[in-house]
Simulated assay, not measured.
Amino acid sequence: MVKLITKRGSHIWSQIITVCRTLFAPHYRFNRTSTSTASINANRDLSEKLANGAAYHYKDVDTGTGYGENSILADIRKEKIFKKKTSLGVVFASHFDPYPLPTLALEFTVLQHCNSEFSTGKFVAAEFSEKEMGKNYLTHLNDLTHWAAINKTVVDKLRHKWFTRAMGSFAIGPSDAGTHLTEAHEDALRAELAGRTGDTDSESENA
């Protein structure tokens, strides 16, 4: 997964940043248009609060609980990584269950980038820097690796849950799969297999 993200390079970074920008301000209640002193101060204070300990990815940013469970992450996945059948998470579904730590690190990094755009109190679109983003990405990946090791069983279950929710209607479970085999077909196949060992190709020719 690290290689997949790295191979996509700045292309996937910039696309997810674009998606995140549309969601970020309304989700965390930043005021993107007002130029009043009160709004600027409120934006700056909120940005500092979210930056402290990377609070932006917690489910509850005030208490710092629900590691990696902020609902904006699910929204980002829905809008980009699992948006359609040709999206990265759907095409490579087997690589996303449980939800990969490298992908989480990518999402955390993008949130950090979007939060930095409000650090002065006014929205200023930050220039995309692959070098800076890469540095932040590795820090988040390190944090996530330590987090996952604290209680692997629970964390794996959380990551599986995030994957299944992200897949949504794209997921195909056993109950959705049909069959071409009737009972008569199964009886015929059972009789055919009973007379074979499976050891040689010639069995089918001499049957």
Rank of each mutant, 00 (worst) to 15 (best):
N151M: 05
N151P: 02
P100N: 01
E192Y: 12
R159M: 08
W162S: 09
M1Y: 12
H11I: 15
K131Q: 13
S204I: 15
D156T: 08
I150Y: 07
L106W: 01
L88S: 03
G66H: 03
K157I: 09
R196W: 04
I12K: 00
T103S: 03
S116D: 14
L101W: 03
S94P: 02
L4I: 12
G64H: 07
D45Q: 11
L23K: 05
A126S: 11
G173F: 14
N136G: 07
T164L: 15
I17F: 08
F170Q: 11
N31F: 01
A207S: 15
S202P: 00
D187L: 12
N206A: 08
G53P: 05
F118Y: 15
K85I: 07
S10F: 06
V91G: 10
D75P: 02
A38H: 07
K85P: 03
K131N: 14
A55E: 04
H146P: 00
Y67E: 11
G53Q: 05
L144N: 10
L88Y: 00
S119K: 15
F96L: 09
R44W: 01
S14W: 04
A166P: 06
M167K: 12
D199V: 04
G64V: 09
H160E: 13
T22A: 06
I172P: 00
T18W: 09
F82N: 10
L158D: 08
L144G: 07
F108L: 05
M167S: 14
G134P: 02
T153H: 13
D97I: 04
D97P: 01
G89H: 06
L144T: 09
R77F: 07
T33K: 14
R165C: 07
